[in-house]
Simulated assay, not measured.
Amino acid sequence: MTKVINFAHRGSSAICPENTMAAFHKALEQGATGIETDVQMSRDGRLVLIHDEMLNRTTSGKGLVKDHSWSEIGQLDAGSWFHEDFQGEKVPSLEQLLDFTRDKGTIVNIELKNGVVLYPGLEERVIECVRQYGMEERVIISSFNHYALVKCKALAPEISTGILYMEGLYEVWDYAQTVGADALHAFKYAVLPEWVEQARSKGLVYHPFTVNDAKEMMHLMQAGVAGIITDFPDVLHGLLHGEGG
């Protein structure tokens, strides 16, 4: 089971402000072998790592990410909302994360946040950035917008994609093949051992989200998933290395 990818959800987001370099650094310290993050675009086309379309919840800013320049976003505090110890933490760019991980063997799951705000050219810019850092073999692009994943596969067939979905889609492994996807990023309750096996027979792997309970982690590992997306990479690391469960 040690081959299961330990994806830190927005970094080590249980103890650090999500989608910050502090969270990404802590995740690797805790044994994460993968990092899951979210990408949006600034007004001037920079790739911004932030989950919400709005700045309000996780930064000192207000309004839509798309309405602010990268320079403006760079001046915001992205840590104090979580804890005063993180005051001054910044919103990172995709370039910063790829530069941090490229020599560490880390798998990076980039979720395209283009379901509410449709960012023109987001797919092209993300792929260009991944190629710039030579990370094609270690990046998975995921999205709830499956049209975007079809576009990514057309632009970069060498980069893995994963379809994000919430419910028990019928024979999702067949549907995923129509999208050209490589992985099923299912909500944790939409995963059964027999489905994992059927998906594997079609060359697809499961990376369920967001799994924070140790018993659920064990159940999913026993079901044969290839990766788990969690807010607690330290807990999953312990299970993978026989330190709990």
Score class of each variant (00 low, 15 high):
193 P>I: 00
104 K>T: 06
213 D>T: 04
149 L>C: 03
154 A>Y: 10
195 W>E: 12
114 N>I: 10
188 K>W: 10
155 L>C: 02
171 E>C: 06
206 Y>R: 02
188 K>V: 04
193 P>R: 06
129 C>F: 02
216 E>M: 07
223 A>E: 03
222 Q>S: 11
168 G>P: 00
141 I>Y: 03
205 V>T: 11
141 I>C: 00
169 L>H: 12
159 I>T: 00
189 Y>G: 08
166 M>N: 13
212 N>F: 03
119 Y>M: 05
105 G>Q: 09
173 W>E: 15
201 S>G: 05
160 S>D: 14
214 A>M: 08
139 V>P: 11
157 P>E: 09
180 G>F: 02
146 H>I: 00
189 Y>L: 13
228 I>A: 03
118 L>N: 14
194 E>T: 09
181 A>C: 12
220 L>P: 06
163 I>V: 14
194 E>D: 15
159 I>H: 05
120 P>S: 04
206 Y>P: 09
179 V>R: 02
153 K>D: 04
138 R>H: 15
221 M>N: 02
106 T>A: 08
215 K>D: 15
206 Y>H: 06
187 F>W: 15
200 R>Q: 10
133 Y>V: 08
172 V>D: 06
166 M>G: 14
170 Y>F: 14
148 A>P: 09
174 D>C: 08
103 D>A: 10
118 L>Y: 12
198 Q>F: 07
179 V>Y: 02
142 S>T: 13
113 K>N: 05
140 I>V: 09
219 H>N: 14
207 H>M: 08
135 M>A: 06
186 A>M: 04
117 V>G: 03
138 R>Q: 15
156 A>Q: 03
145 N>C: 06
143 S>F: 02
195 W>G: 12
111 E>H: 01
152 C>H: 05
227 G>D: 03
151 K>Y: 08
142 S>N: 07
190 A>L: 07
105 G>F: 04
224 G>Y: 01
130 V>F: 01
126 V>S: 00
190 A>N: 08
167 E>V: 14
171 E>D: 12
210 T>C: 12
189 Y>D: 12
136 E>P: 00
177 Q>I: 11
104 K>W: 01
157 P>T: 09
185 H>I: 06
219 H>S: 13
103 D>T: 14
163 I>C: 11
228 I>F: 04
228 I>G: 06
127 I>G: 01
224 G>M: 06
135 M>D: 01
182 D>F: 00
167 E>K: 15
125 R>E: 15
120 P>H: 05
165 Y>C: 06
105 G>N: 02
133 Y>T: 01
149 L>P: 00
